[in-house]
Design a protein around this nucleic acid. Sequence first.
DNA 1: AATTCGCATAACATCATGTTATAAGGCCCA
DNA 2: TGGGCCTTATAACATGATGTTATGCGAATT
Lengths: 303, 303
Amino acid sequence: MSQPRTPRIRQLEALMAVIRNGSVTAAAADLGISQPATSRLLADLGKDFDFQLFDKRDNRLVPSQEVRMLEPDIRRVLELMRHISDSSANITKRKAGHIRIACLPGFATNHLPAVVADFLKDRPGVTLTIEPDRPERILEWMITEQYDFGITDGFFGHPAVDRTDIKVRTVCVFPAGHDLGRLEKIRPRDLAQERIIHPRKDSTFFQQLDRRFQNDKVELHSLIEVRQFTAACELICKGIGVSIVSELDAVKYADQGLEYRPFHPPMPHELSLVRPIHKAPSLITLEFIEEFASSLAPFLLRG
Amino acid sequence: MSQPRTPRIRQLEALMAVIRNGSVTAAAADLGISQPATSRLLADLGKDFDFQLFDKRDNRLVPSQEVRMLEPDIRRVLELMRHISDSSANITKRKAGHIRIACLPGFATNHLPAVVADFLKDRPGVTLTIEPDRPERILEWMITEQYDFGITDGFFGHPAVDRTDIKVRTVCVFPAGHDLGRLEKIRPRDLAQERIIHPRKDSTFFQQLDRRFQNDKVELHSLIEVRQFTAACELICKGIGVSIVSELDAVKYADQGLEYRPFHPPMPHELSLVRPIHKAPSLITLEFIEEFASSLAPFLLRG
DNA sequence: AATTCGCATAACATCATGTTATAAGGCCCA
DNA sequence: TGGGCCTTATAACATGATGTTATGCGAATT
């Protein structure tokens, strides 16, 4: 007696085709191959399985009891194979996969959702994790490779992290109807009498901003220290103070009780798109990063 | 771009082997094939799946994110294939399968359990359904092919049912200590003064018995009409009446307050082992029928 | 620079799986 | 009974899948 070899997928397909169609000839047509090919697939399978595959009844082939015992498993195998093949096709077409994104809290609520929605529109199999947190944590996640892609700012670099820096335009925002609305662009000296809402004083962004004011020989009157540009915008919509924020955030509030004008001299908000350098990114991740970067194009500070 | 072909089992095995072992060389050893063979299996799979399968890290190959997405499905497929192959081997060795048995109620409790227990001892994968019912119902189940094997009696035959008739010896049973114990064998005339417990009067068995009494010019004094030999035995164990029953049943009660002697002239209890004639029996079923039949050998009425 | 290790490629053998041609067996109908 | 007809099995062969050994290439180690 030959030791039983594990059956081949093709044989199982033939078996199921015969069960469905009730005859070898019909099964062959169903499979799109010749009748003798099907016949031999079954003969070979019958040699592997050492029992009768079919009984002849009313001129139809009906599966033997042994085959009926195996049938559920066989169905599942074939279904899974089809699923694997489908998934791989979707992955190839960048329509399936999972992307883990760590970002600044502002992006989680503000710009990112629109990009994600657009990205998912024709990629039904893709899933995402979006984790908002502080820059230090984002950096840590990149280093430990727990996330595929990070959006952060004030990034100093790290050998395990691949960075793409993006300079986003910043604008001066103020409550709608404020006198500043009469200016084309706003310089530090225009803000000499204003109380400023700004990020934490130990942030890179604040230090840049403060230097601009110093260059203009104007004192920066601090009103509120916030962590997020969106928080500043919310406050200004309520009629409190003025701020210099990323244009990304400003546009979102443009019709919610806030106006903005270019800030001069041009000052960037320096975003960094980061990812683990040692971990090969999946293609779908690269594609997302690309789409995300290009979504920022309208807001880039040229030069 | 080539249309994606469905991957082959062998390729998936190679993929999992590399994931397990972290290198192609080790995977090849694991699979028991040469390194180049493994290498090409992966290369081919990589062509089918149009993405990177592995990243090199710390001198190990770790699966790419895309592969990790597919990994659970792949595992399940391979596991199922193994299961199919195992089951088929068990079936081949007649160690798995399901047998549906319909039998007289007496057999369900009396002789059959021992045979089943013995049969299952070295066939761990086999499962059974045992359904006790009246002969008419058993016949119906055979005709409708709802059961694989039936044990019945008083069977007149049916074109859709394959029968094997078995004549089991009958014995006269009586309470332990009864005067009849002094006889070697018991004839109807020995029972002239006894009250008989017997099957229903419309049964074949009763009619045979009655004829024996008539031949001996003895009247059969009916005491209780039962459906089952075991019921008769139970009553006799309580000291009531005498009966003529299958020796199969008598032996079970031999040490429970009952004695028995051969009945003369020899009278068979005509059992029929039946199965659906149009339905090809599974090998395991045939094997069981054979084992069951031979378990009856010690009780056969020769001639 | 030389060695070693791991992987990929080449050339080839064998098995798997398809083809077409044809024979064998069961069923229906005169 | 014998002739068509349908279904399945077998034969002979082409091609693809999967194994072999021999060998080359590049990165890590010495």
